[in-house]
């Protein structure tokens, strides 16, 4: 049971991380356009210069 003294603070950290991630996502309008982002991976455009 003493492990709770470590586990609970760890859980709190993850909880805080989750809240931070949600706020960050809202602030960056990650939920604004779900359609575009979902299909963006399908496009081949690559900004990085190709190495070949």
């Amino acid at each position: 049971m003493p492990s709770l003294y470590i586990l609970i603070p760890v859980a709190m950290i993850f909880c805080g991380l989750a809240v931070w991630a949600l706020f960050w996502a809202l602030e960056n309008e990650q939920f604004k356009d779900a359609d575009k982002e979902a299909s963006r991976i399908l496009f081949d455009q690559d900004d990085k210069p190709s190495k070949k």
Binding site: A11, M12, C15, A18, V19, L22, F23, L26, E27, F31
Partner: peptide, 17 residues
Amino acid sequence: EKKQLRRIGLAGIVMMQ
């Protein structure tokens, strides 16, 4: 709307914990 979602999100995550 953003502010509303923040309030709901915080309450939701904390509710689970």
